[in-house]
Design a protein around this nucleic acid. Structure first.
Ligand SMILES: [Mn+2]
Ligand SMILES: [Mn+2]
Ligand SMILES: [Mn+2]
Ligand SMILES: [Mn+2]
Lengths: 240, 240
DNA sequence: TAGTATAGTTAGGCTTGCCTAACTTTGTCA
DNA sequence: TGACAAAGTTAGGCAAGCCTAACTATACTA
């Protein structure tokens, strides 16, 4: 029985999952219990059940008990399986708190595909196996967490810096910038373009008046005084 | 600088993430590049940027380049960090294919909280550390995966069976069921209720006519012939 | 068996996030 | 400069999921 490619939303998978779990706990599944477990209103459940029926996953009849079709049970079981594997890993390998693990598993179960889940299951098996050979990996990890000082100094994959393109108005006196772009096309911008303010040119800020207006800059040997408003439209990349 | 509790949707986090990454790769960030990377239309990007601006995360001005605020950069960096940690774990510990890991990480990054991510990072550190002590855990795991026959026999956390409450019409001759509920309140249902068909009673199906109609049952010593339509409204739990 | 409590449905509305088509702004280059 | 291309915005619409309020069907109990 190969599971059909389902393409269900996270929401619908959760409905399937709780119906599946409720069915395992009591004789019949009631709409209100689904609502309570998922934290949604009764009418939301009605809506979801209609969708599940339309997809051939639930045997829905108004006012009737809720049951899953064969296909629905298969899909639900798959979700529940992912949930269990994930929670097991979070709790018994990583040592995450049970409640947090429960919630995390019920989110992640909808976004991790079979390849990742299969590997994770193998890994759990590996860890379990290792503990039988005298080397309890999960335990070893817990020790590792305890013994180490709080500061994690793992080379937390350096994250590339954000580019240094800013408005010319933000450049400090003495700094230089290469013009990347001039925003807008107004008469004023044409005026400064005529004075050599074009992309590619390097400008140096010389003086900035108290309130940031005006700004004295030097480019191509010329001096130029710019309004803050104008400068803010000149995007430069800081150089040197 | 403590990161503010953001509560961003997965979608908005992805926008932040790609803006952050693009900013690291080139001088300026263009709307169309965001659209291309996320696989959405230009207008969707415009909409998202307006939302990010309203949340104080992006410096959005129509037709201007896209930049992030301090808060936006912080939020984006957090998402990117989760992404990197998850991908690293999937690829270098679990041995998942790089492309699949990339996609899985970019989904899971939105649903796994700081507790899980912190533990995962510690675990990666633990594995890395172990490899320096001559016991390469990740490598060991790969061997384990290879050497083992395809069949995984890990006690895949037994999943509870679905409850056996069915309509009486589905019960085979010779089987018995305890009545759980009778659906509907029509005159017909009242008739059979008068004959002892009430919740709690155990019925045994004796004979079923060729097309499933009628159905002969025995209860409390009486014989009763039911229409399939009637029987389908009598929910029973299989017994014995 | 009626009257009330409970369960479930319907109607209508909201938000998020996406789309296409048409339009405007900006960039480019002869 | 001015025409054309590229980038970005606006308008309008749609689907998924959720909600509340009002209504209806079923269950319980005296
Ligand atoms: Mn879930
Ligand atoms: Mn779950
Ligand atoms: Mn993502
Ligand atoms: Mn990502």
């Amino acid at each position: 029985m190969v599971a059909a490619k389902s393409n269900l939303s996270a929401s619908l998978e959760d409905y399937l999952e709780v119906i599946f779990n409720l069915a395992g706990e009591s004789n019949v599944v009631r709409s209100k219990d689904i609502a309570k477990l998922l934290g949604v209103s009764k009418s939301s459940v009605t809506g979801a059940l209609r969708v599940l029926k339309s997809k051939g996953l639930a045997n829905y009849k108004p006012y009737d008990y809720v049951t899953l079709t064969e296909a629905g049970q298969a899909a639900a079981a798959e979700v529940a399986r992912k949930h269990n594997i994930l929670k097991y890993f979070f709790v018994n390998v990583l040592g995450v708190d049970s409640d947090i693990a429960q919630k995390a598993a019920c989110k992640a179960e909808h976004v991790l595909g079979p390849e990742v889940i299969a590997r994770l299951l193998s890994f759990i098996e590996f860890v379990t196996r290792s503990s039988k050979n005298g080397y309890d990996l999960a335990d070893e990890f817990k020790q590792f967490c305890k013994n180490r000082s709080q500061s994690s100094n793992f080379p937390d994959k350096e994250i590339s810096e954000v580019s240094d393109v800013v408005g010319l108005n933000e450049v400090k006196p003495g700094q230089k910038g290469r013009i990347v772009k001039i925003i807008g096309r107004s008469g004023v911008n044409k005026r400064i373009a005529d004075m050599g303010v074009v992309p590619g040119t390097t400008v140096e800020v010389q003086r900035v008046a108290p309130l940031g207006d005006p700004i004295d800059v030097k480019l191509k040997g010329y001096h130029l005084s710019l309004r803050k408003e104008e400068a803010s439209k000149i995007m430069v990349e800081l150089v040197q």
